[in-house]
Design a protein around this nucleic acid. Structure first.
Lengths: 137, 137
DNA sequence: TTCGTTGCTAATAATGATTCTAAATAAGGA
DNA sequence: TCCTTATTTAGAATCATTATTAGCAACGAA
C-alpha cells in the first residue's frame, strides 16, 4: 500500500512531473494484476472522471521509458506491471491467462554477447495450460 | 534447404492437409528471418499469386496450434519462427529490431511449479540496444 | 504569490494489424 | 471419379494503439 504522496515523489525522482493522472495510473498498477491499458483506464477514470484513454497510453509509455514499469506484449495485447523485485510470468497457451512466477533460485541466466549489441535486461515467459484450460481438455 | 515435398510430409505428419498455400508459408518461414504476417504474405504471394492475407493468418495460426512454429508478440506485432533447435531472441528497446541469440551453455532454466498449472515451455527475450540505436544515442 | 515557460491532457480522428463472414474451391478418402 | 469436409478467398468489420491539436496545469523564477 503506497500513499499518493509517495507516487508523487517516485515520479519526481524519475524526472517526471507529478500529475494526478500519473498518480492514478500508478495506483491502478498497484491494485490490478497485469492490467492492459483499458483496465488501467477503467480504474483511473472511476476516481478521476475527466481522465482520457489517450492519457493512459501516454502515461504508461512514459513510465516505461523511465523504467518504472514493464510492458508485456502477449496475444496481441499489452499488459503492464510495476517493476518490483524481478519475477517471471507464465501464460496459458489456450486462453492467454497470465500469472506471476517466482524465479527458482537455481535458475541461472547468462547474458549472451551479441556482436555490437548492448544487452541489459531480459524477460522470461513460461508457457503451458492454466487450471481451467487443463480441465477443459 | 527443405524441399516442398518435405513440407507436405511435415504437414501431413502433423495431421494437416497439404495445400500449396501451407507449403508456401512454410517455405517463407525457412527463407525469412522472423517475418510478420505481412512479410510472409509478400513472399508467398510472389510465388502463388492468388494467395490472400487472410490465408496467411489462418495458416500461421494452424501451424502454431500444432507446434510447428513459434509466435513472438513484440511491440504490438507478431513475428513467426520455425520451431528449430531452441534459441532465444534479443530485441532493441529503441527500434524494435529482433535477432536470434544462442543460449549460453551455462544458462540453467529451472521450470517453476505453479499451483495447478502444467508448464512445458518457455520463451526468453533479452533486451537492449542494437548497433544502430546505440550510435544514435 | 504571480507569471511564464514547458510539458501534459483531452477529444477526436486516423491507422493498421488481426479477425470475421459467407461463398467458392480443393484435398483426400471411398 | 465422386463426396464430404476442410480450406481459401475477398472484403468488411473490429479494436488496440497512435497521431493531432488546442486548451490547461505543473513548477521554477521573480
Amino acid at each position: 500500500m503506497i500513499a499518493n504522496q509517495n507516487f508523487e515523489e517516485l515520479l519526481r525522482g524519475h524526472g517526471l512531473r507529478a500529475t494526478p493522472q500519473r498518480t492514478m495510473v500508478l495506483e491502478a498498477l498497484t491494485r490490478l494484476s497485469h492490467p492492459d491499458a483499458d483496465a488501467v483506464y477503467g480504474y483511473a477514470q472511476s476516481r478521476f472522471s475527466s481522465m482520457s484513454l489517450a492519457t493512459v497510453y501516454n502515461v504508461l509509455d512514459k513510465l516505461r521509458q523511465v523504467g518504472l514499469i514493464v510492458m508485456l506484449d502477449l496475444h496481441g495485447r499489452r499488459y503492464f506491471d510495476l517493476r518490483v523485485e524481478p519475477h517471471d510470468h507464465v501464460r496459458c497457451r489456450h486462453c492467454g491467462n497470465l500469472a506471476d512466477v517466482a524465479r527458482d533460485p537455481a535458475t541461472r541466466l547468462v547474458m549472451p554477447s551479441v556482436a555490437s549489441w548492448v544487452i541489459d535486461d531480459q524477460e522470461l515467459v513460461w508457457e503451458g495450460l492454466c487450471p481451467n484450460c487443463r480441465q477443459a481438455q
